[in-house]
């Protein structure tokens, strides 16, 4: 049983990994055909990976309701929300617009999904302001450098800030956008590139560990 449960899956990972890697470095008709088949299959397999998220959400809220956990009534709205989209989608055949006319699915997207999703992330703006006031402390030279970069960017991105810069610092001969451009294309590139290479090395090592079956946490427990 261990063969079916463990060894064969690990072999699939190794085989697919090595062949995919090889097809990059040995380009020919066979490797291209192989890659094409894999691309098409992966495209379909990934289409089902979404079910993991869906089932995870549904089961966790189902448990909350069945156990009558505190706030279980709210969990009902997860299912209400789901049906609010899926029923109109079935009615309209998954089309938000038919010609110039909006369908009920398009209506839900524009007025319900856009509002909810947009607002969820917009709320963060408030916290960034209160954090800026309460936690942004310039206590060291490093913190000052961080503040200086932030200051220039925050000011220079909006017309009013640009006007303020022009009024106070035009004698320097530089516009605030010039300074931001320099910041973004020189020191920021240096900082970001260092991080990038670190991530790249990490990525390569992890990928090799997965192909050779050393890293297998994603397979779950035995």
């Amino acid at each position: 049983m261990i063969l079916i449960k463990k060894h064969i899956p690990l072999f699939i990972c190794f085989l697919v990994g090595v062949l995919t890697l090889g097809s990059y470095y040995v380009p020919n008709v066979h490797s291209e055909n192989y890659l094409e088949l894999m691309n098409k299959w992966e495209n379909i397999v990934a289409g089902f990976a979404f079910l993991l998220g869906l089932m995870s959400l549904f089961t966790s809220h189902f448990h909350k309701i069945s156990r009558k956990a505190p706030g279980w009534g709210y969990s009902l709205f997860v299912y209400v929300g789901f049906l609010l989209v899926v029923v109109p989608a079935v009615v309209s055949g998954g089309k938000p617009m038919i010609g110039p006319d909006m369908t009920s699915l398009g209506w839900i997207y524009r007025f319900v999904f856009t509002s909810l999703s947009g607002t969820m992330f917009a709320v963060l703006a408030f916290y960034i302001v209160s954090t800026a006031y309460r936690a942004f402390r310039i206590k060291s030279p490093q913190a000052f450098v961080l503040f200086a970069a932030a200051f220039i960017v925050i000011l220079g991105r909006v017309p009013l800030g640009q006007m303020m810069w022009d009024g106070l610092l035009s004698w320097t001969g530089y516009q605030v956008t010039d300074v931001i451009e320099w910041l973004m294309s020189v020191p920021v590139v240096a900082g970001r590139r260092g991080i990038m290479i670190g991530i790249a090395i990490g990525g390569i090592v992890t990928a090799l560990k997965i192909i050779f079956g050393i890293e297998r946490q994603y397979m779950g427990k035995d």
């Binding site: 079916i4 449960k5 463990k6 064969i8 899956p9 690990l10 699939i12 990972c13 190794f14 085989l15 697919v16 990994g17 090595v18 062949l19 995919t20 890697l21 090889g22 097809s23 990059y24 470095y25 894999m38 299959w41 992966e42 397999v45 990934a46 089902f48 990976a49 790249a200 090395i201 990525g203 390569i204 992890t206 990928a207 090799l208 997965i210 192909i211 994603y218 397979m219 779950g220």
Partner: peptide, 22 residues
């Protein structure tokens, strides 16, 4: 354990592609 077949298929392919790209 059946899910391992799907996962290893995805992970092997992804890992094979990620190495040359990185």
């Amino acid at each position: 354990w059946i899910s391992r077949y799907g996962f290893t298929f995805i992970m092997g392919y992804g890992s094979g592609l990620v190495i040359p790209m990185e």
